[in-house]
């Protein structure tokens, strides 16, 4: 593109952004100030939801179908990265293979702590802010930091385990839904008595899958790093 075309394009972009900002601003400005949406209903039904945190209740009970589809979307993202990049550690992880004792010592302390925080957030999601997604993200960042410190922890992972870790959240979620259908309820309609444990089980498996998926996307689609690629940098 020549420079005049570029200028016209960026001017058009600026106008477009101004229009969108104006529209969003107008929409926010005209919000009714005393409107609680569905939150009253959500809180009224909380005692049957199996969790005392309204956010978790919405995500994993009232609208668990959305969360199920989000898990599928995450898996699709991993598959897309897998297809495009084909896995393997990208070369940067190799740069930091230059052994840095301070970083390694830091990682040695931080990794168990991150796993603990992740488990804590998962458990906390029942009654306070937290839950599978946050827990999975922190677990994933622990895995990414390990790679940045030059510790290749995933190349020994068997291929089947990689696939299990990536899909177990989706399978557990769908499995619970189907089992509930077999007992005469509708898809993902938890009985109030066992809702707490069903939600916790789904969250544990989804947390693992989310972490695996995020690390996989970071590594170019595969959770299992390729050791042959790793050796090249050193």
């Amino acid at each position: 593109m020549d420079s005049s075309g570029w200028a016209v394009g960026s001017r058009l972009g600026a106008v477009l952004i101004a229009v969108i900002v104006g529209l969003v601003g107008y929409a926010v400005w005209t919000f009714p100030s005393e409107f609680s949406g569905l939150s009253d209903h959500a809180i009224a039904e909380l005692q049957h939801a199996g969790t005392s945190n309204p956010v978790t209740a919405v995500l994993l009970n009232y609208r668990s179908y959305d969360t199920l589809l989000e898990m599928a979307v995450l898996l699709l993202a991993v598959l897309a990265a897998w297809a495009l990049v084909g896995g393997g550690v990208n070369e940067v992880c190799l740069v930091s293979e230059v052994s840095n004792p301070v970083l390694r010592g830091f990682v040695r302390v931080m990794t168990p702590l991150s796993i603990l925080v992740s488990a804590h957030l998962l458990w906390l999601g029942d009654h306070a802010p937290g839950g599978a997604f946050q827990a999975g993200a922190i677990l994933a960042s622990a895995g990414v930091v390990l790679f940045m410190a030059g510790i290749d922890w995933s190349h020994k992972l068997p291929a089947w385990l990689e696939r299990v870790l990536l899909t177990i959240g989706l399978f557990a979620f769908t499995g619970v839904g189907i089992v509930l259908m077999l007992t005469g309820r509708s898809f993902l309609e938890y009985p109030p008595a066992t809702a707490k444990w069903l939600i916790l089980m789904i969250e544990v498996f989804c947390g693992v899958s989310i972490a695996a998926a995020l690390v996989s996307v970071f590594l170019g689609g595969r959770l299992r790093s390729r050791q042959t690629v790793l050796k090249k940098g050193s």
């Binding site: 940067v92 992880c93 940045m148 970071f218």
Partner: peptide, 11 residues
Amino acid sequence: LTGALLLTTAA
């Protein structure tokens, strides 16, 4: 995570 991904990509 996005920051780490972007930084490694830049490197």
